[in-house]
């Protein structure tokens, strides 16, 4: 009996072996590498030519104004971008949840942009937002508006990127749609009998009932925006004047353009800590407002 139990333990390990190996090689090892190199002065990724320099990468970063800009931009995308994008997803989901004729047709399309490769998305957006010949400025011109410098001006580039995020937010919309479908209709019926207004019904029934999904989307979107890179690199190359220069873009630049690999590793570790802290904070704070059905307050 005991031996069969031990055998079963081995079998368990065998089943999860792929993951166990993958976790060790593709997570633990690189993570260890990052921590190790963060305290060196290696210039090339993985270079064996380095000295240990203690914390000086971290202190150099604190005095680097471009690092400061990348942090500020990323905070912008997290503090402003995440709520806006999440609200956008929710509004679109509410709209697509309406019970009107032909809604299926509308629902077919919202997910399509999410499936566009990001480089193609950027090509398309550059065509649409082209300040001279783009369809958007052409359209605004019909109303007598002047040409807006969407991608090349420090003022507009961040909002344009947030708008782009809404464009590719199909997955979040999908999650909200499913959650909205899952709200038991008897709750609404009871509220209707009580004569609750539509807005009232939304805030006292819909919102609490879908709060776990909101939490989920919020966490995912926060992590995503902390790591924003491709959009900023391809759309505006971090510019103008570092206006769209994100944290991960700076990591990439440090590692591959500036030949300061160890600095990139120090930045990676700081980012890791920041994301961990913010995620924990959201999860902790969520206890107050997220409603789990059947568990009471979670």
């Amino acid at each position: 009996m005991i031996s069969s139990k031990r055998l079963d333990g081995w079998k368990f390990l065998l089943f999860i072996a792929p993951w166990l190996i993958g976790f060790t090689i593709f997570f633990l090892l690189p993570f260890g590498t990052a921590v190790f190199y963060a305290f060196t002065d290696a210039r090339l990724p993985g270079s064996t030519d380095f000295n240990f320099i203690g914390m000086s990468n971290f202190s150099t970063l604190m005095g680097d104004p471009i690092f400061g800009k990348s942090v500020a931009n990323t905070i912008y995308f997290v503090l402003l971008g995440v709520p806006i994008v999440t609200t956008g997803m929710l509004l679109i989901a509410l709209l697509l949840n309406l019970d009107v004729k032909g809604i299926a047709l509308f629902r077919t399309f919202y997910y399509l942009p999410t499936l566009v490769p990001i480089v193609a998305t950027v090509i398309i957006w550059r065509l649409v937002f082209n300040s001279e010949f783009g369809v958007l400025n052409g359209f605004l011109g019909l109303f007598g508006m002047g040409k807006v410098n969407w991608l090349g001006g420090a003022g507009m580039i961040k909002p344009v990127i947030i708008l782009l995020q809404i464009w590719i937010s199909g997955s979040g919309v999908l999650i909200f749609l499913a959650a909205l479908k899952g709200v038991p209709s008897h709750l609404y019926e009871a509220a209707l009998i009580d004569g609750a207004s539509r807005i009232r019904r939304f805030f006292s029934i819909t919102l609490p009932m879908i709060s776990p999904s909101i939490l989920f989307v919020l966490v995912i979107q926060t992590m995503y925006n902390f790591q924003m890179f491709t959009e900023a690199m391809l759309l505006s190359n971090g510019g103008p004047n570092y206006a769209s220069y994100t944290y991960v873009f700076h990591i990439y630049k440090a590692a591959f353009t500036d030949l300061k690999f160890s600095m990139a590793m120090a930045q990676s570790i700081i980012l890791f800590a920041m994301i961990l802290a913010v995620t924990m904070f959201i999860l902790k704070a969520s206890n107050r407002f997220v409603y789990y059905e059947g568990e009471g307050r979670g």
Partner: peptide, 28 residues
């Protein structure tokens, strides 16, 4: 099992791009 599955869940939370340059080193 439970401990390991917890780790699985934790790795869901690991930001991929934090790992991408360190992973680059591994692949080199």
């Amino acid at each position: 099992k439970n401990g390991l599955f917890f780790i699985v869940l934790i790795t869901l939370m690991i930001p991929a791009s934090v790992m991408i340059v360190p992973s680059f080193v591994l692949y080199t």
